[in-house]
Nucleic acid binder design. Structure first.
Lengths: 332, 332
DNA sequence: TATAGAATTGGGAGCGCTCCCAACCACCAA
DNA sequence: TTGGTGGTTGGGAGCGCTCCCAATTCTATA
């Protein structure tokens, strides 16, 4: 069996309490005691029993990552991988464990509810993707602190970490304008999603500010995935754009494929800019100009935000909006 | 604060012990008591405190999913998605929580070690992909029970769940032979992986058994990913095969693209068979004949195996090899 | 040197559960 | 009536930790 606090206490000649203080980095321990106890802990590779700690403190030192989507989605979306990595890292650094909830739609809602009240996490992080009304209600009813990555469409006083999608789209579009492109098309994200909507707004803002006409033929709605980038671009090409702003990197990649198939050159005949700065964009031919979204960092931040929320049960709301930046490569 | 066993005991007029028995489905409780207590538990939506339970039993009711993420293809591989789904489902059904470990390469190995000894899981599941020596040593040293999905290259007395890759490859190749194809090529998996190696062996076995020549030009090594299927197929086409056995569906899909680009018809000019039976194979044009691997079920089984291992600390080794089956569609 | 006050240390109580043994109750056979 | 039996039930002990208060030691000052 593993060691206990009491073992360490005995071996070091101090008491359980002092050992506990050392482990938790509390003040009020002499240097000598701290050194000796630390040494023994290291030697014995001692780790306090999490269950006992949880029972005594009422906190279980675990946060949940709630993903209201089929698993397929999670592991295919490179965006999500980076997010999960950031979250995972932050948990590790803060000595929290990360519990993964994969909840499939509909039927499993009840199981979320069950889990939320199970007392197995102190709080959780979730992504705003595809929130419907009952879902958000369930979360709110849980009484557990949580942080959303992204933003909810109409619940505004939630804790979230999100990108400034508007600014990002403006950066992208302004970049195209600055390069002298005139017929700038866009493949948007889904218009029932906050991010999709804002990225279109940013595009329109910049065209307008620069006195360019917003031509309906040059705006087409995609779904953020590669396939839709391809099909949308095919349609757009009929209207002879000289640049395309795709609201996601995956769509930009799809669009590049379509452009190549039409035997046009990037960026000579037509420029392409993406959004997200996924790692694979750098390996495209040509490398894709895009808007950098610090996804990993956002995951990390979400955890830190959650920890703050958990320390502040009296309702302070934490909202962070991250500024994106432009990454210029050879596709524009 | 949440209710406790004692609350339920008081409300029902029975004792803590009896309530505990009801909750854990133990025998030796009268029907009347069981009914009344069950009713009150439902009414109050009571869930026993996990930490207390863990402390009392010494089991924390959580298993870890360890993902040695050195290889980014783990994520992009739809194989992994299905696996995770099965694992997640099994955990839910057995009332275990699933803890996610995303471990980054090299440097973070030590952190795995730390976690393993942290007592936050009762056991864990991991995938065999890209195990290097220090990795497996770390796992073995942990003293925690674990189950591998797949097989380790040279450690044979580990608990695992794996597919009979040999039989699968034989099924696939035999199918091609039966259909009358003579120049059967193969795009193999990486030859330093057990699955890759076995699938090639199966291919050779069948050719040999049927008196066909094994032609080196018709064997080419891929890496299981779509891209490599495409490039390998391009090379193979020079040698005029009339059928291709790709050791993964993704490679088969890549190969089909290459074949179409060469303006050849599937299966008239050249047949293609894959391996895995990923959902997307059914939607190919033409739908892909492939070897069915019950991935979801394997994930599920891995959890059940782990539970068995945890009940048998005295070293019984559980190894399951699943038989694949042939799924005939229109590509052959 | 005495003593207040600060720094350090020790140990009881309790978190909510499970495990185990003892107690209780009916019921039946002797 | 007594004793034995099996089915139920109750409650003490203990899991390993934190929290809190009391005890002890040290330090600085009069």
């Amino acid at each position: 069996m593993a060691h206990t606090l009491e073992d360490i206490a005995e071996k070091s000649g101090y008491s359980r309490s002092t050992v506990s203080r050392v482990i938790n980095g509390e003040p009020g321990v002499s240097k000598k005691a701290r050194q000796q106890i630390t040494k023994i802990i290291k030697e014995l590779n001692f780790h306090p029993n999490q269950a006992a700690r949880a029972l005594a403190t009422g906190k279980i030192n675990t946060i949940g990552l709630l993903i209201p989507e089929t698993v397929n989605f999670i592991f295919t979306d490179p965006y999500f991988q980076l997010l999960a990595q950031g979250i995972s890292k932050a948990c590790e650094n803060n000595d929290y464990a990360l519990l993964l909830w994969l909840t499939e739609p509909e039927i499993e809602r009840s199981s979320i509810k069950k889990y939320l009240n199970h007392g197995i996490v102190d709080g959780f992080i979730t992504a705003s993707i595809n929130f419907d009304e009952p879902m958000i209600d369930t979360l709110l009813q849980s009484n557990l602190p949580f942080v959303i990555i992204g933003r909810h469409a109409y619940e505004f006083d939630l804790n979230y970490v999100d990108l400034d999608n508007l600014a990002g789209a403006e950066l992208a579009t302004q970049h195209l304008v600055d390069r002298g492109y005139k017929r700038i098309a866009t493949i948007t994200g889904p218009q029932d999603m906050f991010a999709g909507e804002e990225r279109l707004t940013g595009y329109c803002n910049v065209l307008h500010a620069n006195g360019l006409v917003i031509e309906e033929n040059l705006i087409i709605e995609g779904d953020f995935l590669q396939e839709s980038g391809y099909t949308c671009a095919k349609k757009l090409l009929a209207f002879k754009p000289d640049a395309i702003f795709a609201a996601s990197d995956m769509m930009a990649i799809g669009a590049m494929n379509a452009i190549r198939e039409a035997e046009l050159h990037i960026p000579e005949d037509i420029a392409v800019i993406g959004f997200d700065n996924l790692p694979l964009t750098a390996q495209q031919k040509p490398p894709l100009t895009t808007i950098h979204q610090p996804i990993h960092q956002m995951g990390y931040l979400a955890v830190e935000t959650l920890l703050k929320v958990m320390d502040n049960p009296d309702g302070e709301v934490f909202q962070t909006i991250i500024r994106p930046s432009l990454v210029t490569r050879q596709s524009t």
